[in-house]
Design a protein around this nucleic acid. Structure first.
Lengths: 374, 374
DNA sequence: CCGTGCCGGGAGAGCGCTCTCCCATGTGCT
DNA sequence: AGCACATGGGAGAGCGCTCTCCCGGCACGG
């Protein structure tokens, strides 16, 4: 082939401009709705766009605007520790070859990714984020960061401008990712207050208030021998829910509350319930720090011949889909995850729009959803 | 210094080249590992890269390579019908108003996105895709396509080069999205065979074989009055699972099998089980076409005083997290969703790498996982 | 000794877009 | 009239990268 100016490539601004008999700049102005353009010309440009089937090339636009118009949604946390690599390993070549093999059958820590979505919580976060982003023509890039290598990749992804900022949901306490991101001067918003204070915006729930709702409900129901299955006590959500629960109970004349620590999984809830039941066979109320553990508790209670809620009342936390899937359906403290996730996206987009680098946090109020279990 | 060439922007190839005392082209060659470069120079470039903290700008690279190095993961299907537009109805104005009212505060069909992840299935797909993509330095962009407007946006997103191809998971039968994408000449791979044949690659499960496993297991267990809760009968998975089940049962001397149609949700499983129980109070075995419905069935059975598995054996399908969350844990037909999703990603990447436009499909074999419910 | 390769490096032309200038018109005021 | 100024359009310079050329150097064979 000597020369073929129109091989198969998508139409460009230039093509549209030619078709409409105007300049590239004018077409660009019409397409982006910027500045005043004569209505007549506007119309002819519109027609030319339609006629050529023009779609702006995002890479070209990004190159000059320096915006990817895309954000990363990062689920961060620790996978199984066996897969965790040392923080600062050998000085790897800056850019690893495209075919980075080396880590497991498919290179990654699959157990983490596989289990994340077993918790309905993350699905709700995704839904909330997507619902906010979508009307704005944006879609999140889904990333996981459970190893230091993966964290570096997230930072690198952001640094190369593939996304303008990050929404980070951490699953454990000492997550180094937020610091990594902000240190690199990249915009990010967290779901939930970080374990150690940092200059970073976040959305969170008034966990203590939620726990108070649960305590008051159990007491109002007439429960008198109440225990709680806590979340992991190294994360703020776990701590706060316990603190709020204990506090309220103490205030109501129950200074001592048996507790068993769980890990927010159904299985850990079962174990915790077994332990609690062994030590306090006469309990009549349980507050589990999330629904998954509450479901586990219900199973164990039933296996031990206790009826829920007649013998033992159970209150969960989150109002996740697990709460409804369970029999009886769980009475639970609702966490408006979707709205919180949407707010998180809003905060990030605001930050991206205006460079007023204010760090804010938005705290949501929980509410009690009374169903069958208590 | 007369000028200040380093304002605040990230270092570019040019900067690295200057630092290493070579040309842009050479740095590019080193970074991309293409062509031979003198080892000595290579090393000095590496150091310059490290010293400057260089990260290639993705937009610039995409612009010239015409690859986004990114793919879309699209969950496609019908939201609540109220928001869905007729399949081939009146020639609707191409663009419905941006603020399609009647569908939530933020203009989108939130109920769809909110419910998608209530099914643990989608989380597994995401995990499988991410696990395959991640070692290759790619991350999926998450999109939903449940309205014609959303579908157009997906196509447009792909057309503007924001992603190189799409992985499509449909939730209902007559999904127009795959056709839309392939008509636009865009690469895509489906999860599950499309309802109407199309020139498009897909991965799928040998549903009939799975149903056979379930049937044989129930029969081997001694069940004789067996019913089935089917999936929606307008989707191939629903049809095939029923066909396989009926076929095996007929072959084994059970030509008539009571059926009740569900919609793959726990609630529909409950309704179906109620119906089945009302009409056939003496049944002793149930095959539910997915785990969610099986869980619903278990609940209803228990409420009607039937013990699982002693009185009625229940077999599910999928081996989703719901199977383990349930008491007793579900005996179920395992669908290797993660592997299938990874394969789907592999097919797409292969297609993107080599333009040998072969359309292939890969069918996975299910296996039976025996747990407590049957 | 001069071709003929090959090998490793540089020059430079774009990729498609945005956006700053700049210029040709109006339009209103002195 | 003369001038200031707003208005709307075009020209063109890049954004940071890849990749095709091209060219100098060196080894080899005739």
């Amino acid at each position: 082939m000597t020369e073929d100016p129109r091989p198969a490539g998508a139409p460009t601004l230039e093509d549209v401009a030619r078709a409409a008999g105007v300049s590239r700049a004018t077409v660009s102005r019409v397409v982006n709705g910027v500045r005043n353009v004569d209505p007549v010309i506007q119309e002819s440009v519109r027609q030319a766009v339609a006629a050529t089937g023009y779609t702006p090339n995002r890479a070209a636009r990004s190159l000059v605007t320096r915006r990817a118009d895309s954000i990363a949604l990062v689920v961060s946390g620790a996978g199984d520790d066996s897969a965790e690599d040392p923080a600062d390993g050998p000085p790897e070549p800056a850019d690893s070859p495209p075919d980075a093999s080396a880590v497991g059958p498919d290179g990654a820590n699959n157990s983490f990714t596989a289990h994340v979505f077993a918790d309905p919580f993350f699905g709700r976060v995704v839904a909330g984020v997507v619902n906010y982003l979508r009307p704005r023509g944006m879609y999140p890039v889904l990333m996981f960061a459970e190893t230091s290598r993966a964290r570096d990749e997230v930072v690198s992804y952001l640094r190369q401008g593939s996304a303008d900022g990050a929404l980070v949901v951490s699953t454990h306490a000492e997550d180094p990712l937020p610091a990594l991101i902000t240190d690199a001067g990249l915009p990010a918003v967290l779901y939930a207050r970080p374990a150690r204070p940092a200059r970073i915006s976040y959305v969170d729930l008034a966990h203590q208030d939620g726990a108070r709702l649960a305590a008051e409900h159990l007491l109002a129901r007439g429960c008198r021998r109440i225990a709680t299955i806590t979340g992991p006590l190294d994360v703020p959500a776990g701590q706060d829910r316990l603190a709020g629960f204990r506090d309220t109970m103490a205030r109501r004349g129950h200074p001592y509350i048996p507790i068993a620590e769980g890990r927010f999984t159904q299985e850990s809830g079962e174990t915790a319930m077994e332990r609690l039941l062994a030590e306090h066979p006469d309990l009549d109320g349980v507050f589990a720090a999330n629904d998954l553990m509450a479901v586990g508790a219900c199973h164990v209670l039933r296996e031990h011949g206790r009826r829920v809620p007649e013998d033992v009342a159970v209150v969960g936390f989150d109002d996740s889909s697990a709460a409804l899937a369970c029999r009886p359906p769980l009475t639970t403290v609702r966490q408006p995850v979707e709205e919180m996730a949407a707010e998180m996206a809003r905060l990030l987009l605001d930050r991206l729009a205006g460079p007023d680098r204010s760090v804010t946090s938005v705290i949501f109020e929980p509410s009690l959803v009374v169903r069958g279990s208590a």
